[in-house]
Computed example of a mutant assay.
Amino acid sequence: MDGMPDNLEERLAALREQHRDLDAAISSLEAVPAPDQLRLRRLKKQKLLLKDEITRLEDQMIPDIIA
């Protein structure tokens, strides 16, 4: 087991919390006069990857509706 939550709701909650934490870290880093641009780019990329994973899981939770 990889330590990840078992169900989708728990996994989504954990990912959303990580996303918020990254957002706060990015905001803090951007607030300094000369932020580390490489670190900033890495944090933003990680945040984007988390957002993609959140979207993918949310899509799994929504049943397909055939119109």
Rank of each mutant, 00 (worst) to 15 (best):
H19S: 08
L50K: 05
R41E: 14
Q60P: 00
D2S: 13
R56E: 11
T55F: 04
E17F: 05
P35K: 07
A25R: 15
E30R: 15
I54R: 07
M61N: 08
K44T: 00
A25K: 14
E9A: 11
A14Q: 12
R11D: 06
D23F: 01
I66P: 04
I66V: 13
D52V: 05
R16Q: 14
R42S: 09
P33C: 03
I66S: 13
N7A: 03
I66M: 12
E9N: 11
M61E: 11
L15N: 09
L29V: 02
I26N: 01
P5C: 00
L49I: 06
L49G: 07
M61Y: 06
E58C: 02
R16S: 04
L57Y: 06
L38C: 04
Q46T: 12
L38S: 14
D36T: 06
D6M: 11
A34F: 09
S28W: 03
A24C: 01
K47F: 00
A31K: 06
E30G: 01
G3N: 07
R42H: 11
L48M: 11
P35E: 04
L57K: 05
D6E: 11
P35W: 05
D59S: 15
S27A: 15
M1Q: 09
Q46S: 09
I66E: 14
R41P: 01
A34T: 15
M61P: 10
D23A: 12
E17M: 06
K44P: 00
A13E: 14
L49Q: 14
K45Y: 06
D36S: 02
Q46G: 02
L38K: 15
A67G: 13
E9Q: 14
K45F: 06
V32F: 08
L49E: 15
P5E: 01
M4Q: 10
L48Q: 14
R39M: 12
A25F: 03
D59P: 00
H19P: 03
V32C: 04
R11H: 12
M4D: 10
E10W: 00
H19Y: 13
M4A: 10
P35R: 05
I65D: 12
Q18N: 10
A67H: 15
D2R: 09
D6K: 12
D23K: 10
T55Q: 14
A24V: 05
E9T: 10
Q60E: 14
E58Q: 13
P5F: 00
